[in-house]
Nucleic acid binder design. Structure first.
Length: 147
DNA sequence: TAAACTGTCCCGC
DNA sequence: GCGGGACAGTTTA
């Protein structure tokens, strides 16, 4: 299947997505847009019009990928909620340090909602910019409070 | 407040 | 191929 690359705006950033059908291979954040469409589910999610990215599948969450057991726990965090690195690690039978590393290496942020994983006494980190993480958490909590 | 712990990746040899 | 260091955190003393 042909892989499509596209982007859509999110605040001061562009979310760049490489995808084919309902399978997403890669998501990155950049100040430079990418010519092409992003998946409609992602566009709606970033606009706050949708809370559900489940029609899309992340290539990184498929069993056998290095951190799939950690990503599975991250995927179970509901929209508008957060969990700590320690909680995720405990549920996945791993260590907090590993949970942080798995989030850093996450090739598909948004789909695997690593922005919902925060540190015990702070927001934790985010690549390339923790500002994006704050915006995503803020978006979800505002959208959630409408319901 | 500092140090130990954790598991994987990456780079240099 | 192997060893050491880095890394988006937590816990304990």
């Amino acid at each position: 299947m042909e892989i499509i690359s596209g982007s859509c705006r999110f605040g001061l950033w562009f979310v760049r997505v490489w995808w084919s059908g309902n399978l997403v291979w890669n998501v990155t954040f950049s100040h430079q847009p990418l010519g092409g469409p992003a998946p409609p589910e992602v566009v709606k999610f970033l606009a706050g019009h949708s809370t559900d990215l489940s029609p899309l599948r992340s290539a990184a969450a498929t069993p056998g990928s290095p951190y799939s057991h950690i990503y599975r726990e991250v995927l179970s965090i509901p929209y508008g909620s957060t969990a700590t690195y320690g909680e995720i690690a405990r549920r996945a039978g791993s260590s907090p340090r590993m949970a942080g590393l798995a989030m850093k290496r996450n090739p598909t942020p948004l789909l695997i909602p690593c922005h919902r994983v925060v540190s015990q006494n702070g927001i934790g980190g985010f690549t390339p910019d923790v500002e994006i993480k704050k915006m995503l958490i803020d978006l979800e909590q505002k959208r959630k409070s409408y319901n």
